[in-house]
């Protein structure tokens, strides 16, 4: 790729907008996932009595928490993909058109 194209894309305000929005959003979601999962591992490693709290006759609190982490992974992925395939793809299309 020649440097001319690169500098033209970099100078495009839409590229700055894409970069700003996407990197913020993707990093926020990645951190959210790390925090949720990190909390789960922390509980498993250091807070066993908390996970062992009974809710109902045999079911422990650890069960809905584990399932919750699974669901959160699916939701986070869906959230990012929905926004990236809509908003960001639109911006990328415009940037590509501007460059040609």
């Amino acid at each position: 790729m020649n440097t001319d194209v690169v500098s033209r894309v970099r100078a495009n305000p839409k590229f700055a907008e894409l970069e700003r929005k996407r990197s913020l959003f993707s990093r926020q979601l990645a951190v959210l996932m790390v925090v949720i999962y990190g909390g789960f591992i922390y509980a498993v490693a250091f807070q066993k009595p908390f996970l062992a709290t009974k809710i109902g006759s045999v079911v422990t609190l650890g069960l809905p928490i584990g399932l919750g982490v699974i669901l959160s992974a699916i939701l986070i992925t869906g959230w990012y993909v929905a926004r990236a395939n809509g908003e960001y793809e639109q911006l990328i299309r415009e940037i590509v058109e501007d460059t040609q």
Partner: peptide, 24 residues
């Protein structure tokens, strides 16, 4: 029992990381 869930959860949580930081 519950230990199996720890593996399941761990195997899954890599995917949001992949899609947000790497897939594109």
């Amino acid at each position: 029992g519950y230990d199996g869930l720890i593996y399941s959860v761990g195997f899954l949580v890599g995917w949001p990381i992949i899609v947000t930081l790497m897939a594109d």
